[in-house]
Design a protein around this nucleic acid. Structure first.
Lengths: 144, 144
DNA sequence: TTGATATTGATGCAACTGCATCTATATTGG
DNA sequence: CCAATATAGATGCAGTTGCATCAATATCAA
């Protein structure tokens, strides 16, 4: 019993793969051109900034961003070494730690957003009106 | 003049990133579980199969699949070593080569499609009806 | 023709990812 | 309480990617 996808589903799939690749490559290239780190760093900084005072545990970040545990562990390491993120040992769970973004991290996130936000405006905003963008988000959300 | 994307564009962007990650991780995991190689191999095999007799030049594959030149070069190497792809030296351009899929490659692509096609059916087909899938493809195409 | 430039594809090296596994601590069941 | 199991996070190693650059051939302009 080999089930096959219909052609509309395949077309949507291919468009998803292609649109994602083109869009992400574009953004990553813009960041690199501005001497800024990759998008993943932005995601971490932004989650930590949203988390505020109390910070976030790595496993929470992992779930929020859908990163692999070992990738996140090393990414945090790099970001810590780059002076963007603080690791505080966790009083109530001595296996763990709490992550906090510092001023330098917040400043970097802002600089990244200047580039990233503009890219989103140009890649999405210029090509879809608000209603279309909303419909796109709704359709994509059904795939999650 | 820092231009900012509107919230609908940002929402679409985030959905795109998330839907893509979830969907691709799902498919890659299914392939791995079936002891099959990654999606990129499928793409190469399928392009070569579509190209037929005359095969394809690496630079053509590169454009078709939006791969980086150096990644493609090494991917072809691995696929050649795996006995899936033949490299024929090119009579009219001695810098280049022509790539052909062989029987083993075609057979592998078919086995991959059994898994991949089912995944598309379940991930897209089960969640969007044909009209929705078509609308999604249309919207995503505008981003390319 | 010939020298300058562009294109095709490969590759050395550093960075990153995936996998398996490890240590340390927490939780749970008896 | 204790042993068994689960969870948090780190890490060694192999495989892959990104970057820079190279060699070989093709194209183009004078």
């Amino acid at each position: 019993m080999t089930r096959k996808p219909d052609s509309a589903a395949v077309a949507a799939w291919i468009s998803l793969a292609r649109a994602h690749r083109v869009a992400m490559c574009d953004v990553e290239a813009r960041l690199k051109a501005a001497d800024l780190p990759p998008l993943a760093w932005y995601d971490v900084l932004w989650e930590l900034e949203k988390a505020g005072e109390c910070g976030l545990r790595p496993f929470a970040l992992e779930k929020a961003l859908l990163f692999e545990q070992y990738n996140l562990s090393r990414l945090i390491d790099r970001m810590h070494k780059a002076g963007l993120v603080e690791r505080c040992s966790c009083p109530d769970d001595r296996r763990g730690q709490t992550l906090h973004v510092n001023d330098q991290g917040r400043a970097l996130r802002q600089r990244m957003w200047d580039v990233y936000g503009l890219a989103i405006a140009e890649i999405v905003g210029d090509r879809l009106d608000a209603a279309e963008a909303e419909r796109l988000a709704t359709l994509l959300a059904k795939l999650g």
